[in-house]
Simulated scan of single mutants.
Amino acid sequence: MSEALLAQAVTALKTVGLNYAFVLDLGERTAFLRGLGVTLQLCLLTIPASLAAGVLIAAALTSGRAWLVQPARAFVEVTRNTPTLVQLYCAFLVLNMLITQHVKMPGGNPLTPFVWVVIVVSLHKGVFHAEALRAGIGAVPRVTLEAARSLGFSQRQLLWRVELPLALRFALPSLVNNLVDLVKMTAVASAIAVGDVTYESIMIWTQRDNVLELLLLILVFFGLLTWLVSLAGRWLEERLRMPGYGQ
């Protein structure tokens, strides 16, 4: 969009009381667009990372081995019962400081604030994925498991080839709901000065006093992202549906 069209749009919006003059400033416009990109990066990294964490935690919870089940259960209870923001502060302000003090590497601590957001958000939502998958594993019909055992499947093969593929289908609506929440949760990145869309918007509105206008943009942006995740989830449900299974 050319500068002239942007100026016309800004002028038109002023007539309804919305001040979007920041888009005419190259520096502020670039910062806002950069924030959009950082938020997209966070989503693209935390979605697969949280799913991988969920699968591993669910596997530990359903392993039947006490040395795996008990630590996994303790981790789930602590993680899901404490706020994400508190976890992020503890990770970045405590663990990060300890790592910085003890790691002797060229360039110092490789864990940037961005990386800490990915780790904390992925693990936080991973425990919710794990519980959804655990419920899905419990919903696998007993006759299906008996049939797999009669074919000589080991416990590990039973989990990875039978239980998890079916559990994924059973738990998919819950997983998609968790991913929608994850997309919104990435906004906590602004709390430790990661330059996501929320942080960059805060930097802009402290100079221009246009909080309402930027919040509207943030709402539209996250609404679009969560809608796309929901759309992908519905597509997967249709794609992975097994006609007649369980009937």
Rank of each mutant, 00 (worst) to 15 (best):
P113H: 05
V94A: 14
A66P: 08
L85N: 06
L88N: 01
A60R: 05
V78P: 04
L93P: 00
V94W: 09
R80P: 01
G54Q: 07
A49V: 09
V115G: 03
V78D: 04
G64W: 02
H102W: 12
Y89L: 14
L40G: 15
Q101W: 12
A31P: 04
L85I: 15
M105N: 06
I57D: 10
V103W: 15
G37L: 11
A66Q: 13
L88V: 04
V76H: 11
L42P: 02
V69M: 09
P110W: 06
R29G: 10
A52Q: 03
L95D: 01
V86N: 05
A74H: 10
L33I: 13
L45W: 12
I57G: 11
G107A: 02
T100R: 14
L56P: 10
Q70P: 00
V55Y: 09
A58K: 08
R80S: 07
E77V: 07
L36V: 14
L36Q: 12
A66T: 13
G64F: 01
A91V: 06
L93F: 15
F92W: 15
G35W: 06
G108C: 02
G107Q: 06
V103G: 00
L36I: 13
L40A: 14
P48I: 00
F75A: 13
L98Y: 12
L61K: 15
P48Y: 05
P106L: 06
A66M: 07
T30E: 14
Q70S: 10
A53P: 07
P110V: 04
G107D: 02
V86F: 12
P106V: 04
V38Y: 09
Q101G: 15
F75I: 09
V38F: 07
V38W: 05
L61M: 08
L42M: 05
L33R: 10
T39R: 08
C43A: 15
T100L: 02
L45M: 12
C90Y: 12
V38K: 08
G108I: 02
V38P: 11
L98K: 07
A59C: 08
R29S: 11
F92M: 00
A53D: 03
M105Q: 10
T112D: 07
T100G: 10
L68S: 09
K104W: 05
L88P: 01
L33N: 11
T46Q: 05
L33A: 13
T62H: 09
L42E: 09
N81T: 04
A59R: 14
P48G: 08
T82D: 02
V115T: 15
L33V: 13
A59L: 10
S50H: 05
G35E: 07
E77C: 01
F32W: 14
A60P: 10
P106T: 06
L44W: 04
A59F: 09
L93H: 11
T30N: 12
L111R: 01
V115M: 11
S50G: 11
L45E: 11
F114H: 13
P110L: 05
V38H: 09
A60Y: 03
P110A: 07
Y89D: 02
P113T: 03
V78F: 14
V94L: 15
T112Y: 00
H102T: 14
Q70R: 15
G108Y: 04
T82S: 13
Y89H: 02
A72E: 09
Q41V: 04
F92C: 01
R80T: 08
V94S: 10
K104I: 06
L56K: 07
